[in-house]
Amino acid sequence: MEGSVSIHRHTAAPFHEYLLQGSVVDNSCDVLLNRLRGLCDNAENDYESFHDHELVFALRSSTAQNNHNQQVYFRVRHSLKAPNAPWHLRYVGQAEVGDKTRHTLVRTYVDVSTSDNVVTFLNEMGFRLDYEYVIKGYFFHKGRMKVTVSKIFRMLQPNNVENLEPLSLSYLVELTVVAPAGQELIQDDMKNFAEQLKPLVQLEKIDHRRITMM
């Protein structure tokens, strides 16, 4: 126990998330799931599913003197399948596309497990709910790579996770690795893995800024 006082990690640096994205239409989803099951760890088990509710909160300020609008988004996620599991509070930075030598998107990523009062906590801090959705899907692991195949549902009434409508006729496919800053080599592994999933799904680095401009 001696020296335990210095355990606190006040100065811990944020992690980076390396990310590739793609999508697959509903009809082809099963083929992709089978392929992933074969490629990923624990092939002998049935693939694991998740069913989450995600709420995105924004903290905004409008300082009159410089007319400069600042905002920060925090994402709250909790499982609808396992109500006793901890809630998650996440911060995801702006995704950087980088140049051609970079195979994936890179963004700052902080994921913190919290108690279940996080929504009231954020509201009291001044955050306001921006939008929310329900996400259902499957996840796979291959080493430290994570693959999720998920469907996003629009909530027809606020705060009602039963009354849903699918956002599209396809599944979102994401290949991610969360690692400490500076582990650029992981991008090569991700690129190679993405190659193995072609032509079932094209995983690419998608420029989010271009989508928001459209």
Binding site: H8, R9, H10, A12, A13, P14, L59, S61, Q70, V72, F74, L89, Y91, V110, D111, V112, S113, T114, S115, N117, V118, F121, G126
Partner: peptide, 18 residues
């Protein structure tokens, strides 16, 4: 009172402007 992982400190740094 929110009980969170110790990385919550990093989240507070993200709120520097607020």
């Amino acid at each position: 009172c929110l009980v969170a992982d110790s990385q919550f400190d990093i989240l507070m740094q993200r709120l520097k402007g607020f």
